[in-house]
């Protein structure tokens, strides 16, 4: 088999790539938050870092910081995926966690197609 033919196989191989599921992304994000909480992530950094979301600081504080957000966003993501719509009370929290200017589908691009096709 020539180098050109082998390269054609590599091209086909590159095109076939595993994509992360919404559930995996939610688990990875949940781990990030749990680890931050476990080492006592300082609240001021949480407030200062995401410049685009004005209301997040108070929301995080009210809800109890990293662990609460981790649980809520995970629950919200799974709710969206399994139930096709998040529980009403979680919508605002999830949206805030994911950034003021963003939508849940930004976190999970595959949801875009899923929701529009439905």
């Amino acid at each position: 088999m020539s180098d050109t033919e082998l390269e054609a196989l590599f091209t086909a191989g590159r095109a076939r790539r595993a994509e992360p599921s919404a559930a995996l992304l939610a688990r990875v994000m949940g781990d990030a938050m749990a680890e931050a909480e476990a080492r006592g992530a300082p609240a001021p950094a949480l407030v200062a870092a995401p410049r685009r979301r004005g209301g997040l600081a108070g929301l995080v504080a009210v809800l109890g910081g990293w662990p609460a957000m981790g649980g809520l966003v995970t629950a919200g993501m799974v709710g969206v995926w399994i139930g096709y719509a998040a529980p009403g009370g979680l919508d605002a929290v999830t949206a805030a966690m994911l950034g003021g200017g963003y939508d849940v589908s930004d976190m999970v691009p595959s949801l875009d197609a899923y929701l529009t096709e439905g």
């Binding site: 994000m29 990030a32 938050m33 931050a36 300082p42 609240a43 950094a45 966690m97 976190m107």
Partner: peptide, 16 residues
């Protein structure tokens, strides 16, 4: 340093 935004970007960028 505690940025949830950074965690989110890294999750989306690196997990795939």
């Amino acid at each position: 340093q505690g940025s949830a935004h950074a965690a989110r970007v890294l999750t989306l960028r690196l997990t795939p």
